[in-house]
Design a protein around this nucleic acid. Structure first.
Lengths: 237, 237
DNA sequence: TTCACTAAAATGTGATCACGTTTAACCCGC
DNA sequence: GCGGGTTAAACGTGATCACATTTTAGTGAA
């Protein structure tokens, strides 16, 4: 077995007023979300601390937090690693995502006014632009932005943290979905969702949203593709 | 304003092989779950550490973890407190609970066999016993046990952590529901759920489960009762 | 009495160190 | 060469200390 390569993390600049803890959390979260750390890779506190050039203290709290959000996994060894994915677990996460987000959208619907719809339309345009430019990471970010803004129309926010947790778990594997994105004719589910919002039609919204989520998933969801991806431990370009 | 009373936590014995961190987390979680710490009460690291007779290190990690599970809330002051509840937030949490748990039950259904049903029946009996004995906390614990065992029939577990998060947020207020428990004729929704499991009937299971959850909630859910409870900051016997 | 300003206490944050456990390397005997 | 046992390195955990920020108390003037 080859020796584990030295850990290198992309260091985004640290915001002013941001604690080292938050910065470490944000950096690690981003790395996990875009699948930069292959599943099964174990993260030691000292290594991450060295990679981020900070002490161990903020790092271990960031690691623990990500673990409690199911983005990382603590083994019996007390060692922390990126969770391994299985086909059935993946399916389970997708179905959960659909149930959760359809519910979130339905609960948000009554609060969606014209201003919000305009905002969502704008974000949707940004997705298209990133899509046209072949910017996969941009598509991911703006797509999450679209969903987040929709659900957060509901002022009584309790669902978003759970949705984010699911996103984090699926995160490392959405890259695969995006790599296939251009191979299919892309139906704009977001337009359908926006139409449903304008009509205040809950059922149409659910349908559009479920279709949108499945669209991004089915390309991955075939057992063959995913298991090939899983076996390669995330090494997909 | 009266000076904040000194913090006293019920210290459950520490398991062997359990780290101080885990023990502190478990203790705090339990305290929050049963509503022992009134909403709005701010928890300082040093106070909790003193109450648990440990150093600050494990405590702050426990606090942060509970915060990331939405059981506690970090303010802009960086201070940590038990979240305040509002009527609409409560309703939102209840609807989320129903959506989440109905989905979990449906995904678990195919895996529920005779052995599991027998186990659930046993737990249900324990609920009745606690109910008869007037043991509210026992009812809560065994009821959660029933739901947990049902959802965990699904071997690909991804939903339970989210469910636990919702339980934690509702936790401090279920006490009120239980205080009214004996005032109404109690339809045994668990029996209906068990029947649905035997028949492998997804729809009947959903209906039974939603009814079960609503039964425990409607007594609280009336705006008057809850707001009275919220105003009193959890001071309900 | 009330408001503003200052000083002191309290609190969160981050770094460093010590200890026990786990993991990996190494060496010896077969 | 190969397996088993010993030793050293690596790691997580928990405690203590120093520092910056926040909160509170106290004081004095209007």
């Amino acid at each position: 077995m080859a020796p584990t390569p030295p850990l290198s993390l992309p260091v985004s600049p640290r915001h002013p007023k941001e604690t080292v803890n938050q910065w470490a959390y944000r950096s690690l979260r981003q790395a996990v979300m875009v699948g930069l750390i292959p599943p099964g890779r174990s993260l030691t506190i000292r290594d991450v601390a060295a990679a981020l050039a900070v002490s161990t203290m903020p790092v271990r709290e960031a690691l623990r937090r990500l673990a409690s959000e199911q983005a990382l996994e603590v083994q019996d060894n007390r060692r922390i690693q990126v969770p391994q994915m299985t086909v059935s677990k993946f399916r389970e996460l997708c179905e959960l995502r659909i149930a959760l987000e359809c519910h979130a959208a339905e609960r948000a619907l009554p609060y969606v006014g014209a201003a919000r719809i305009e905002q969502l339309t704008l974000i949707d345009r940004r997705i298209d632009e990133a899509h046209a430019a072949g910017d996969r990471e941009g598509v991911t970010i703006h797509n999450q932005d679209f969903h987040r803004h929709l659900y957060e129309s509901n002022p009584n926010q309790v669902i978003m943290p759970l949705v984010e947790s699911v996103w984090l778990q699926l995160g490392p594997f959405t890259r695969l979905a995006l790599s296939k994105l251009n191979d299919f004719y892309h139906v704009d589910r977001h337009s359908e969702a926006l139409a449903a919002l304008k009509k205040q039609d809950p059922l149409a919204l659910r349908i559009a949203l479920e279709a949108d989520i499945r669209d991004g998933i089915t390309h991955v969801g075939t057992a063959e593709l995913l298991s090939a991806y899983v076996e390669n431990a995330g090494m997909v370009g």
